[in-house]
Amino acid sequence: MSNAIELTNVGWKAGKAFELRDVTIRVPNGSIYGFLGPNGSGKTTTIRMFMGMLEPDHGEVRVLGRRVPQEMPRIMAQVGFVPERPHLYPALTVGETIRYHSSFYDRWDQTWAEELTARLRLDSERRVSRMSKGETGKLLLLLALSQRPSLLVLDEPTDGLDPVVRRDVLTAVLDYVAESSATVFISSHLVHELERICDWVGVLDDGQVVAELPMQSFKNGIKRIHVSGAPDAPGDTPFVILNRSEGDAFSAVETWVVRGWQDPMRQYFEGIGATVRGVVDLDLEEGFVELLRSSRPNNHHRG
């Protein structure tokens, strides 16, 4: 089993408003996989597919090598899940919530649950109904980690949390990964947060996967290139042009955003009589924005 999560051509339709279209995802074992996409792109729906909470219209889903939803109980014993919306009993205290959850999991580590309570500065006497958003987020993570999962699924785990709590949450996740080599699937629209920790990136837009690749290839492959003297119809290019915009009133230098760039491709520009004025690296956020812009039908891309 080399992938912790596998979705193969998964389709699902909810009325006319939204559908997942042939979603194929491979989350390698031991990776920290960042699942990016704008709000409403279908990230949470995709997660529900492999958490067995929704059944696809077609396609195949496997988690930890087992079929979803047929083998869901055995899968759940090894998966820690932090959902987008909390599912806690408001009348229980933090301590009671921890004890309640512990009863469902064979691999529950109570010592670690207590250590995390202290480290995340949670008060075990506090009632869930009186907790802040940040405290709720930390408690959900504590519950997911204390079951010592082989796979940790985090749906927007830091959305709406303040920077201090965000840091606590991510540090706890990284600590766990360092000692357990668990796989982490983390969905977020906060791109810069993932840039630091993820080694794989999947990008979802409008119910479709628009990219899935190692973080380093994602970052290295998308470049902004300043070009002068390029013809309007550049013919076959060795890379994919995501976007091409003309120079402004001050300069005739065009900006191309390309995918799959490698340095020897500079020769291509010589071949079409153009000059490369500069090749600029994009960070994850810029690459993400360009990728989405090009995947949408109404883009202004001419290439």
Partner: peptide, 15 residues
């Protein structure tokens, strides 16, 4: 250790 440094830098331990 890998764990300590990953934690300090908040990066993936694999890094």
């Amino acid at each position: 250790s890998v764990r300590v440094l990953a934690r300090e830098l908040r990066v993936n331990p694999a890094t």
